[in-house]
Write a protein that binds this DNA or RNA. Sequence first.
DNA 1: TTCCTGATTGACT
DNA 2: GTCAATCAGGAAG
Length: 218
Amino acid sequence: MSASGYFVPEHDFFARSAVEIAPLLLGARLTHETDAGTVVLRLTEVEAYLGNGSDPGSHAYRGRTRRNGVMFDEPGHVYVYFTYGMHVCANLVCSPPGTASAVLLRAAEVMEGLPLAQARRGEAPPRDLARGPARLTVAAGIRLDENGSDALATPFGLELAARPPAGLTGPRVGVSGAGGGEAYPWRFWIAGDPAVSVYRAATTRGARRLRTPPPSRG
DNA sequence: TTCCTGATTGACT
DNA sequence: GTCAATCAGGAAG
């Protein structure tokens, strides 16, 4: 442990439940390096997703696919996925190989590399640049083709807070169906931190579609 | 093969 | 508050 109050974990650190690890990631420093420069984020909000078919909200619930394969591999690696046709989100893989649990990085504050993050995301205060899982990957410059990378090796880097800040828990954001709601209170965020995303309940396209009635012939 | 949904965001009313 | 954008995965036929 360094005098700065941060320490670099071993891969073994991640070989346990995502629910156990998620709160320990609050306040951690995540580094990502590209040709354009380096951005350092301070994690303010995460969500845990479990494997072994125990979590209906998890991508791994129905077993291994081409997309979620990294979740089933080595803990301490990065699972990056593409969603909604345009967004990229990043997770840290947890638990022993074959378990497929992970922690979604939902929000962070930009600590270093502010000009670079602003070049990617537009002018905004550091607290807003990475507030949201897809915003976070854009601000840090994390790309889909980095899926499966080691979170503890270049171009990534991770330093955990020796004393993680006080966190709160609640239902996961945007998770519909059985995996959502109070039954799975696996969202963790830093109490009172402005760089935490806004809670939105899950929405379904079907509900929207019903709002557009077919043309009447009356 | 077709159709629907989704661990989201930003623009618009 | 409401809704479109846009594509991969998964269920159903």
